[in-house]
């Protein structure tokens, strides 16, 4: 997805302006001779406004040659669109449900669905997903004590912990 500089430039300028406004709202520091939390962000904001303007100017000069937005061929393939959607959806699903479902269930669903979308092989995807989740669970949760969420399986945490 290529977006013309004529669109990106103003976005960067806007970001810089937001940074400037946000830094002006920072409280005055208790200590530190007047250099508060807004000092540095303001400098960065000015920089963004400046570079954004240059970018806009570049885009304006090339406005005839460069389309506003250009997509590569994946946008026309339903399968590839779905691929991208599934990756993002799988991660969102994990983020939203992992504390409730727990790593084992939420992780498995995210992994299995993504793999199924990529491979279109249900059985193989199922086996590989189960194996991967089992390996990750044992190595990280049980051996290295990473506190992956238990979620629904919390009551069985004692039984399911391999030591």
């Amino acid at each position: 997805m290529k977006v013309s500089d004529i669109v990106l430039g103003p976005i960067i300028v806007a970001l810089g302006v937001i940074a400037l406004i946000a830094s002006s709202m920072q409280p005055r520091p208790i200590f530190g001779g007047g250099y508060g939390g807004g000092f540095f962000p303001a400098i960065v904001g000015i920089g963004l406004v400046g570079t954004g303007l240059i970018l806009s100017w570049n885009g304006w000069r090339e406005r005839a040659a460069v389309p506003l937005v250009a997509f590569e061929s994946w946008i026309h393939s339903r399968r590839h669109l779905a691929n991208v959607a599934v990756v993002i959806a799988a991660l969102l699903f994990y983020i939203l449900t992992s504390s409730w479902l727990g790593f084992i269930i939420a992780g498995f669903i995210s992994l299995f669905v993504t793999m199924l979308q990529f491979t279109r092989a249900p059985l193989a995807s199922f086996i590989v997903s189960v194996a991967t989740i089992a390996v990750v669970k044992v190595t990280f949760q049980d051996m290295m004590l990473v506190p992956l969420p238990w979620g629904l399986l919390e009551a069985y945490a004692g039984v399911l912990t391999w030591r």
Partner: peptide, 11 residues
């Protein structure tokens, strides 16, 4: 999921 949830609640 439903089964696991029910069991989890119970314990």
């Amino acid at each position: 999921t439903v089964a696991a949830f029910a069991l989890g609640l119970a314990t």
